[in-house]
Simulated scan of single mutants.
Amino acid sequence: MDVRTAARRSLAVIRLVNGATALLTPRVMARRLGADPGQPALVYVLRMFGVRTVVIGARLLCPADPDALDRELRTGTFLHASDALAAACAGREGLLPRRMAAAATAISTVNVALTLVARGWPRRLPDVR
């Protein structure tokens, strides 16, 4: 298995696990984030996040064609970068405990890196001797 395939499959597994957790046990995830699991709106938002994350994870495991896979990975780069930024902002503004915000930011940043590797970045630069 090449590095690009390993990165894509790793990203798919991360997405499926995190998405399934948010979808099936949103109150557990809320507690892990340091939030009140009794808030119905939070449970709803976590389930929406879970559905989105499971769908994009599954699409990485079963791509329709190379162009569709590239679109999924480009979209994933944007999604994970915005997730990382949102988590960092939530920590800075005190909306999440700093430790949980740092963990969420780190996870999303790793996911950004995985999407880039799966797309073949960094591309090898030509030798200019």
Score class of each variant (00 low, 15 high):
Gln39Thr: 15
Arg9Ile: 13
Arg9Ala: 07
Gly57Arg: 01
Leu24Asp: 05
Ala12Asn: 01
Asn111Asp: 15
Asp65Ile: 03
Arg15Ile: 01
Val128Asp: 13
Leu69Arg: 11
Leu61His: 03
Trp121Asn: 08
Leu73Pro: 05
Gly91Arg: 00
Ala88Tyr: 02
His80Trp: 14
Pro126Met: 13
Thr75Met: 13
Ala6His: 13
Ser82Phe: 10
Ala113Met: 12
Ile56Cys: 08
Arg119Asn: 01
Leu11Thr: 06
Arg92His: 09
Ala22Val: 06
Ala41Lys: 14
Ala113Phe: 10
Leu125Pro: 10
Pro26Asn: 00
Pro37Ser: 14
Asp65His: 01
Pro37Met: 11
Val3Asn: 14
Arg32Ala: 14
Gly91Lys: 00
Gly94Ser: 05
Val54Gln: 05
Pro26Ile: 00
Asn18Cys: 06
Cys62His: 12
Pro126Ala: 14
Asp65Val: 03
Ala58Cys: 03
Arg32Lys: 15
Val13Lys: 02
Leu61Ala: 09
Pro122Thr: 08
Val45Met: 10
Ala102Arg: 04
Val43Thr: 11
Thr109Leu: 15
Gly50Thr: 00
Arg74Trp: 13
Arg31His: 11
Ala113Arg: 12
Gly57Tyr: 02
Pro26Glu: 00
Met1Thr: 14
Arg59His: 08
Arg52Ser: 08
Val112Gln: 04
Pro122Gln: 10
Pro26Tyr: 00
Ile56Gln: 10
Arg47Gly: 06
Ile107Pro: 01
Gly91Leu: 00
Cys62Thr: 13
Gly50Asp: 00
Ala103Pro: 04
Thr75Gln: 14
Thr105Ala: 11
Leu96Thr: 04
Ala84Met: 09
Pro26Asp: 00
Thr21Leu: 08
Leu114Ile: 11
Leu95Pro: 12
Arg99Leu: 09
Thr109Gly: 15
Pro40Met: 13
